[in-house]
């Protein structure tokens, strides 16, 4: 009888472990509901374009991670992206005029928010808005602009064979 009980307990544990693994896969890996908490304070930046920035992306200052992107939404008044940056509470004396830009690590890497300190003596307070922001670089736009410039710059030249010199 005791052995039966041990077997039943083991099976119960097995089923619970399997279901728990499924739940974690659903929650943590595919992120049905995000439950990540970062300690710190939140500041807000408005970007015209955040590109491929995602929630949970790192916020870096001088290459050192200081926080995470905790929320991205669309501001329906200005039609700009409203990005909430949760900064670690260790870095609580960033200057008021800190600027933020959406950057990419490496050619194909993940996008992150880079902060650059300004010179003002007053520190950012929780809930403050960053004054200077720079949008993500959208590759298609740049290529389009490049081609446009190229075309308008070389319209006096011949159609082909200008490369060789």
């Amino acid at each position: 009888m005791d052995k039966t009980r041990a077997i039943e307990i083991a099976v119960g544990l097995f089923v619970v472990a399997g279901l728990a693994a499924l739940t974690v896969l659903a929650m943590r890996v595919s992120n049905i509901t995000a439950f990540q908490t970062t300690e710190g304070y939140t500041v807000i930046g408005h970007f015209r374009n955040v590109g491929g920035l995602r929630e949970g992306a790192p916020v870096k200052m001088g290459g050192v991670q200081v926080g995470r992107v905790s929320g991205i939404s669309l501001d329906t008044d200005t039609y700009e992206a409203r990005v909430e940056l949760t900064i670690d509470s260790r870095f609580d004396d960033l200057p008021m005029d800190t600027s933020a830009s959406v950057l990419t690590s490496g050619l194909l890497g993940e996008q992150y928010v880079g902060l650059e300190a300004g010179g003002m003596p007053t520190a950012l307070q929780p809930g403050d808005e960053l004054m200077l922001t720079q949008s993500a670089i959208v590759l298609e736009k740049i290529i389009g602009q490049f081609l446009y410039n190229k075309a308008s710059g070389s319209d006096s030249g011949s159609d082909g064979g200008t490369e060789g010199k």
Binding site: S30, N31, G56, P58, E110
Partner: peptide, 19 residues
């Protein structure tokens, strides 16, 4: 980066298609 590991995973793994 630990955050990138999870955030990229969560952004690209969908429950219905993959899991």
């Amino acid at each position: 980066d630990a955050g990138a590991y999870w955030s990229q995973m969560q952004a690209n793994v969908s429950f219905y298609d993959d899991i």
